[in-house]
Amino acid sequence: MPAIRSLLVAILPLLASVAAHREPKTPKEIEVQRALQAAAYHCAPAVAEFTAARKRSWAQKVLAGRPSLPGYEELFASGTYNDMIGAAPHGDQTFMECSPVRDTQIQNNSCVLTPVVTEGPYHHKAGHPIRQNIAELEDGLLLLLDIGVIDVETCKPLPNVLVDIWQANATGFYAGHPVPAPHLVNEKPQVGGKRAGLLTAYPRSNDDETFLRGAWPTDANGVAQFTTIFPGYYTGRATHIHTKVYPTWTTLPNETFTSHHLAHVGQFFFDDDINIRIDNMHPYTDNPIRYTYGRTRNWRDSLNIFQDSHGPEGEYNPVFKLDLLGGVLSQGLMGYITMAINASASLDNYWQG
């Protein structure tokens, strides 16, 4: 741990010149990102146990006070909780040079420095409710999210930081943005280039809608949990969920928040294989572009956001680790991921494109 702190002491003075950017571009910025990423790799063993402990806690919460239910090994899909068994690393073997290979299940999302990427055009700087259940009345596949946040400087969980998330509904629309601008109703997606597949962002024309938006502070164990639905897709973008992290914030009388300290902006993704199965479930089959442009795969994500989310060395995994909530997919999913952030960073809290 002293070596990590020494590394961070050397690079923290450079963060002021990097924090305002959405992704590292200059050689200096990339050097800072790589140094932080290297420091985060030392946290990988701690993150593996962090994830297992969260799964254990969640299973116990589900079963608490219900003696008629079987244990989690029988209630949930086979193998869901195998990684809760504390197994020692298998020699010096590593996965992607950062996650220890265990005899149980490899937690390959334990490369944990989360790259900063664009927030996108659909964030509402004001009006995100502080709540755990963000689904409101939106129909879709149940998705429970378990988002851990650790401090890259200490490899320890970060309690009481506000995790803000927002996403599209099952048919690809964001709350507050139901239709395109009138003069762009017949616009076609961009062909070729970095913006391939994208349309002009829909304007905010309904200020009352708040579905699939919300923020919640991490608990004493550095975890924020949400109830939502599996997100839908829209042209040009891979299926994703947006996130911001605020170390400090002020709660407003209407149960929303304001903050002047934004430490992280990022996006989470899902494996294409699970997307393919959910594409065939209602109401995802009602997506208006299902039979025209279709869903954009991760590797074709516009603006290189999926690729950038892997970090300069391509070794961070921004994809949720998903477990079935029951024996079949239609019963829902539980998604786990861990972010490692620098809580002392300060980013501009607005979309920069």
Rank of each mutant, 00 (worst) to 15 (best):
residue 205 S to M: 14
residue 348 D to G: 10
residue 12 L to N: 12
residue 56 R to P: 00
residue 180 P to Q: 00
residue 102 R to M: 13
residue 114 T to D: 11
residue 295 R to S: 06
residue 260 H to G: 13
residue 251 T to D: 04
residue 219 D to A: 08
residue 148 G to D: 09
residue 323 D to I: 08
residue 317 N to W: 05
residue 256 T to F: 01
residue 99 S to P: 13
residue 182 P to Q: 13
residue 164 D to W: 02
residue 204 R to D: 04
residue 337 I to T: 07
residue 27 P to C: 05
residue 40 A to E: 10
residue 248 T to V: 13
residue 132 Q to K: 14
residue 57 S to L: 08
residue 268 F to Y: 15
residue 26 T to C: 02
residue 349 N to G: 09
residue 9 V to Q: 15
residue 256 T to V: 09
residue 76 F to S: 08
residue 186 N to S: 14
residue 340 A to W: 04
residue 179 V to K: 12
residue 352 Q to V: 09
residue 31 E to T: 15
residue 172 G to A: 04
residue 340 A to T: 08
residue 226 F to H: 01
residue 348 D to V: 09
residue 279 D to F: 09
residue 253 P to K: 01
residue 330 S to Q: 07
residue 236 G to W: 01
residue 347 L to P: 00
residue 218 T to L: 12
residue 261 H to F: 00
residue 250 T to I: 00
residue 13 P to C: 15
residue 300 R to D: 12
residue 68 S to A: 05
residue 263 A to L: 04
residue 98 C to D: 09
residue 350 Y to L: 13
residue 113 L to I: 07
residue 168 A to V: 12
residue 98 C to Q: 04
residue 320 F to N: 06
residue 194 K to V: 11
residue 328 V to R: 05
residue 23 E to R: 10
residue 297 R to V: 07
residue 112 V to S: 15
residue 173 F to G: 07
residue 151 D to G: 10
residue 9 V to N: 12
residue 42 H to E: 07
residue 277 R to F: 14
residue 350 Y to N: 08
residue 103 D to W: 08
residue 317 N to I: 06
residue 281 M to F: 15
residue 219 D to H: 09
residue 204 R to S: 02
residue 316 Y to T: 13
residue 261 H to W: 00
residue 82 N to I: 09
residue 117 V to R: 13
residue 82 N to R: 04
residue 84 M to V: 10
residue 99 S to H: 12
residue 3 A to W: 05
residue 346 S to R: 13
residue 253 P to F: 01
residue 241 I to Y: 01
residue 136 E to N: 10
residue 251 T to E: 10
residue 11 I to N: 03
residue 208 D to S: 14
residue 50 F to H: 05
residue 278 I to H: 03
residue 130 I to C: 15
residue 51 T to I: 14
residue 112 V to L: 04
residue 8 L to G: 12
residue 296 T to Y: 07
residue 4 I to Q: 15
residue 73 E to H: 02
residue 41 Y to D: 07
residue 212 L to A: 03
residue 93 Q to G: 09
residue 316 Y to M: 11
residue 166 W to Y: 12
residue 206 N to T: 03
residue 309 S to Q: 11
residue 166 W to I: 08
residue 310 H to W: 11
residue 222 G to F: 11
residue 282 H to G: 02
residue 297 R to N: 11
residue 143 L to Q: 14
residue 98 C to W: 04
